[in-house]
Amino acid sequence: MTKLTCITTTFNDGKALYNSVNSILNQSYENFQYIIVDDGSSDETRDIVSSIKDERVQVIMQANDGVSGARNKGMEHIAGSYVCFLDSDDTRPNWAFQAMVDVVEREDPDLLLCRGTLSELRGDLFPFYDDRVFEIIRNSIGTQPAVQGDPGTQAALRLSQLVEPQPANKLIRTSLIKRNRIEFPNTHFFEDIFFHSNVLARAQKVSFLHTSCFSYFRRYVRPQTTSSSSDLRFDIIPVTKLTLETFEKLPQFHDPYHRAAVVASCFKILEWCEQSISLHYRYHFREAARALLTLINPLFLHFPHDTPDGMEVIRSAEKYIGGLSHA
């Protein structure tokens, strides 16, 4: 029976933490380890975490070190054969683990990607942002897994780079992480794109689950860290650099479509950060982004001429990068 590990990190989430914790503890599939990393909370969160009575829960406390460091700390203690993450303000439906395990036991993938639900600011519920990418993948390969080197599923494999770089949407084989020493980029925000690109490029077999297995909330009561206009948005620049530097050593680097998908998914976030960072920083942000272009492998700046279905984002990245280099 497959054992899962789920990792949640928390920092001053207070009672809001109950939503995500209970959504894990009430899973209909019960064979899992649940690691909660308290990343130096200074409020009632500490008491809430230590009051959770469930033998599957293991709590790790650390001085505040950022979400990446906290997740890395959690990853040192994975006991399950597959691992997933859930942020402290997100939830999973009760069926999520069971549905994921069903696929994993049938297909034995390195990575499983699943659909999600988006709760918007007004409480309206929608399919998650990447619904269309999943739809194209399903139309292309049905419910089969995508396998490296299999010509019939290559397109789907590259497309999955364009699935949202959400930690909640993936279940990863633990040995894949251990063997490749995959971690989150310590001290940085916008850590997800690094992890996502790295895991995806290492996975030989990727499965897809077309059922919502997590929900992501935008809320007025709890502003997202990454929605601020502060200087933390500079972090996307080093994270992009680390992502591309890592990717360039992998075989997929030589697939121009996969490479373009990685560049596009990084620069999509980078462009959004430029549009959101305080105007006081914007000039310097743009300077740093231009410097980044000189630091990365020049092949990253060569985009394929055609646009496969679902990969339109490579065109917007090309346009944005063109604008940066001609500034």
Binding site: N19, N22, S23, L25, N26, T91, R92, P93, N94, G116, T117, S119, L125, F126, P127, T211, S212, C213, F214, S215, F217
Partner: peptide, 12 residues
């Protein structure tokens, strides 16, 4: 139904 129960998990 599916989005609702996905966003708001039920007790056991």
């Amino acid at each position: 139904y599916e989005p609702f129960l996905s966003a708001y998990p039920l007790p056991k």
